[in-house]
């Protein structure tokens, strides 16, 4: 990252799940840590998320998903990121993800997964550490 440039984070909720408490709390924590947060809100398709990341030149993509649809949706997002030539943007995921799926998603390229009870300060620090 360039010196003096604000970190730009995309925070999106893919799929149909509307529980946005975690996404909003993290968005706010990132803002308070001096980041620019592109907040797209709920019900985002993989295509919308990837296009947004592309147009907004973000440094990190944060996805929050609690519906259980993560194994269908997240790999699709990773695939589209690669196709769009922005597979280098780190993706982090928050939500209820069973341990087996955590391993599989990491194997496919997700940088980190934060389950229930994660500290937002830790997530913020993690974002800083990878940008």
């Amino acid at each position: 990252m360039k010196k003096g440039k604000n970190i730009r984070v995309l925070i999106a909720k893919p799929g149909l799940d509307g529980h946005d408490r975690g996404a909003k709390v993290l968005a706010r924590a990132c803002r308070d840590a001096g980041m620019e947060v592109i907040y797209t809100g709920i019900r985002q398709s993989p295509e919308q998320i990837v296009e947004t990341a592309l147009q907004e030149d973000v440094d990190v993509i944060g996805l929050s998903i609690l519906s259980g649809a993560h194994m269908s949706i997240i790999p699709r997002i990773l695939e589209l990121l690669n196709e769009s030539g922005i597979g280098d943007i780190p993706v982090i995921v928050g939500g209820i993800i069973p341990p087996d799926d955590v391993e599989e998603l990491k194997r496919r390229g997700v940088k980190a997964i934060f389950g229930p009870g994660s500290s937002v300060n830790e997530i913020v620090e993690f974002i800083k550490s990878i940008t």
């Binding site: 604000n6 308070d32 620019e36 809100g41 919308q48 147009q55």
Partner: peptide, 27 residues
């Protein structure tokens, strides 16, 4: 802090995938 929530896109997300539209949020 210089931080910002750039949330105007929310209303425009259905246009996000239109190849002839380019949306950029600025703080």
């Amino acid at each position: 802090t210089g931080g910002a929530i750039l949330g105007d896109r929310i209303r425009m997300q259905e246009l996000a995938c239109d190849p002839e539209v380019f949306i950029r949020s600025v703080s």
